[in-house]
Design a protein around this nucleic acid. Structure first.
Length: 770
DNA sequence: TCATAGCTACTTTTT
DNA sequence: GTAGCTATGA
């Protein structure tokens, strides 16, 4: 027997050795799913299947990277580099890029992230003369997104009776028209949003039989991870790609389906068995991860859901500790309790930081955990929240790069046309957009032909300078790699200089972020051919941009660092930790108030709880707080209904509140009259008020100044560094620097009474003194 | 044309 | 509590 088959149980081995024909693996939590998938790939290759013929799709980059690494490890060969292992989005982006010309897109098409997409929705809504307050971009975008995930295009949307009825009832009858305008605008911009990467992929395969045939031949073996999270678009694409060889292996667990809000449907699991004649189903039911206690309560909780694929998870692991259930007074106490517990567990049980994870329902909850960990000097990493690439300064800089690669990218253009300030204001921008729409050309083309559109002299000059600059950057595309161009852009625009001159804390941070971005681009250009990121050895700017937009926050942080990990339960799927804390187990937070409308929604919340529990290997802590700040307001909450679904025998109750640590409580919910809670809660509230008052008072006050009676503003051109000047409001001071463009000169002046300020000379009046 | 202060709406989860 | 937008003065 081959080495790699040792250490697999019978079912797992069966799954690995079943290489041909449709296969569905129902893999319970912690049952060695990734091990099976990676071994299966290794086995295929050992059998002589060419690595170029294997496709494995995951939902996260993290999962893809891990899979790749493990296959490489098993095979101890670089052959694994040729495997197509990646997320649905990244693999499809790569294929779309190669086939873009067929569907009228440039191969350098831009991928719009959610922010870009919402911004386009907002823009076209306005252009259709619809009220943006009523047609909220968020809401409209979500409807468009759902439509695409269900493979409903704009035409179909407008003629779909059901969808139209829904929009009528919501008093938003024009959503379909916005969708249509949005799709057209994206196409005109040479851009695809995340959903388009699936939607257009489907259209490509359906519309071009020769393309379909090409990829059907290429992908002889297809594997899908987390199958329960696929949406109809993904489902149909897999069906098309697998139709020729039918060597499709899907791995999933219906109990861990937590993405229905993104259009995922468990139906796909049932449908899979109907699509092929002879689907082999293998259930992996032995859990290798958790203690018996943890697994038992997980099973007990999930029992409350109806309609599951029947399976019994079991383990041969030790019984383990009881599950610790902790009630605290406030959300801050919850944070304190967890930080204390981590400290104590490290000392007593020789855990290290990276053995701990704190999981929560919403990102907003991370704050109190963060604070208490910081106070105790426990190193931590937060996963989730906004990605590095979504920070304003990063997006601005990237917008330059995006525009260079794809001048039709209107979103990028709008972000940077006047950043740094170059005298092209809102009025001019709006006009350029209107001109572009009238003539059905891109905004960039309007700018290139600016003299034809009658801008006033100053603006025209600014536009022409801008166009010249971008053109000069574009001329580097053919010959220079991503880093060289980015470096040049940083140097030529006053972008980086401006950030460098901003010495505020945030300014320094922003400057450092840009440094980091440049470093990452350098790393990209210097890393030898990484197939996953695009064509082999493609170090172009376009390749770089397409790759980073699909990265999430989790992909940029080191999961192996010795730090406590903080993340949402969604982000924790597929991960495991020796000690897991699940925070905020309160009604209307978890289960979340947004998900209490239907039985399906509640069941999804319960599956989410199931996922949270099953992340724990050895110890599990469930915590909840009596009072918590939400939307900046103190709210009272009851314990989550999920807690009551755990049999009492497995629980070990604690109470920790108002500075009292680990105080046991006899009753199930501990002490709990509303009156008592209010009393306990009060001091906390007071403390916050004091802090915020202090902060308000800490704001520097301006010392007012009455201008001299003979105040006459001096001519700007006479100003020089070192001169003493008088400002009407800020008083007397000395000019430290003179900068900015000729159109918009800016002086930094150190005032005697009011500190250093940046003054725009076009508007502020200054008089030279003495 | 631009920066600032004040107001509002938002937070469920993510590629 | 805060990001993002609008009205306002420079």
């Amino acid at each position: 027997m081959q080495d790699y088959l040792k250490g697999l149980n019978e079912r797992q081995r069966d799954a690995v050795l079943t290489t041909d024909g449709p296969l569905m693996i129902v893999a319970g939590a912690g049952s060695g799913k990734t091990k099976v998938l990676t071994t299966r790939i290794a086995h295929l290759m050992a059998k002589g299947v060419d690595s170029f013929n294997i496709l494995a799709l995951t939902f996260t980059n993290k999962a893809a990277a891990e899979m790749k690494e493990r296959v490489e490890h098993i095979l101890a060969s670089r052959e694994a580099r040729n495997l197509y292992i990646g997320t649905f989005h990244s693999v499809f982006a790569r294929i779309l890029r190669a086939e873009a010309h067929r569907i009228g897109y440039p191969n350098s098409f831009t991928i719009y992230d959610t922010d870009d997409a919402k911004s386009v929705v907002k823009a076209v809504t306005g252009e259709l003369n619809l009220d943006v307050q009523h047609y909220k971009p968020n809401v409209v975008y979500n409807r468009i997104s759902s439509a695409k995930n269900a493979l409903v295009g704009p035409k179909e949307y407008l003629t779909d009776y059901h969808l139209q009825q829904e929009d009528m009832r919501a008093n938003r009858p024009m959503v379909g028209h916005i969708y249509d305008a949005y799709a057209k605008r994206c196409f005109k911009n040479g851009a695809m949003d995340f959903d388009d990467l699936l939607f257009k992929m489907y259209e490509l395969l359906r519309g071009f039989p020769e393309v379909l045939s090409k990829y059907q031949h290429k992908f002889k073996y297809i594997m899908i991870d987390e199958y329960q999270d696929t949406n109809p678009a993904q489902y149909e694409i897999i069906k098309l790609l697998g139709a020729m060889h039918e060597n499709v292996c899907v791995v999933g667990d219906d109990a861990q389906s937590i993405y229905s809000f993104r259009g995922a449907t468990i139906e796909n699991i049932l449908q899979f068995q109907k699509d092929y004649d002879d689907v082999k189903v293998i259930k992996l039911e032995q859990n290798y991860r958790s203690t018996q206690n943890i697994l038992t309560i997980a099973n007990e909780v999930i029992k409350n859901n109806k309609g599951q694929i029947p399976k019994t998870l079991f383990t041969e692991n030790a019984t383990g500790e009881k599950i610790k259930l902790v009630r605290t007074m406030t959300d801050n106490d919850e944070g304190k309790y967890i930080a204390d517990a981590i400290q104590e567990l490290r000392l007593r049980n020789h855990y290290v930081n990276k053995d701990f994870a704190i999981l929560y329902r919403t990102n907003a909850q991370s704050r109190s955990f963060e604070e208490s960990l910081r106070r105790m000097n426990i190193p931590y990493t937060i996963f989730g929240g906004i990605s590095f690439y979504q920070r304003k300064e990063i997006k601005d800089f990237l917008s330059y790069l995006r525009l260079i690669v794809n001048p039709k990218d209107e979103e990028a253009l709008k972000r940077i046309i006047n950043y740094p300030v170059r005298g092209i204001g809102k009025t001019s921008i709006d006009r350029a957009i209107a001109n572009a729409n009238e003539r059905n050309i891109s905004m960039w083309e309007v700018l290139e032909a600016a003299p034809m559109f009658g801008y006033k002299a100053g603006t025209l000059q600014a536009i022409e300078e801008f166009v010249m600059m971008i053109r000069s950057f574009r001329s580097m595309l053919e010959t220079k790699n991503a880093y060289d161009i980015a470096f040049h852009v940083g140097k030529q625009t006053s972008f980086v200089k401006e950030l460098f001159n901003d010495k505020s804390t945030e300014g320094v941070q922003r400057y450092e972020n840009i440094q980091e971005l440049l470093n990452s681009i350098k790393e990209f250009t210097e890393t030898p051919g990484n197939e996953e990121s695009g064509e082999v050895g493609d170090k172009s700017l376009g390749a770089y941009l397409q790759q980073i937009v699909l990265l999430t926050d989790s992909d940029q942080k080191d999961p192996n660092a010795d730090t406590v990990k903080l993340m949402t339960i969604h982000a924790a799927k597929g991960l495991e930790y020796p000690v897991v804390f699940v925070g905020g187990l309160e009604e209307s937070l978890f289960p979340n108030a947004m998900s209490l409308n239907t039985r399906e929604e509640l069941e999804e919340e319960r599956r989410l709880f199931y996922v949270a529990i099953t992340r724990a290997k050895g110890r599990l802590y469930l915590t909840y707080a009596n009072t918590r700040y939400r939307f900046g307001q103190l709210v009272q909450s009851d314990a989550s209904r999920f807690i009551a679904e755990i049999p009492e025998a497995y629980l070990d109750h604690s109470y920790a509140g108002g500075g009292v640590k680990n105080q046991s409580s006899s009753s199930r919910w501990g002490m709990g009259s509303a009156f008592e809670r209010m009393q306990r809660g009060a001091p906390e509230q007071k403390e916050r008020t004091i802090v915020s008052t202090l902060l308000n008072n800490a704001k520097p006050k301006e010392v007012s100044h009455t201008p001299s009676p003979n105040f006459i503003p001096s001519d700007i051109s006479t100003l020089a560094v070192g001169q003493k000047v008088e400002h009407q409001k800020f008083g007397f001071g000395e000019i430290v620097t003179l900068e900015g463009s000729a159109h918009n000169p800016v002086a930094t002046i150190r005032f005697d009474q009011n500190g250093e300020k940046k003054i725009m000379l076009n508007y502020a009046k200054l008089m030279v003194v003495g």
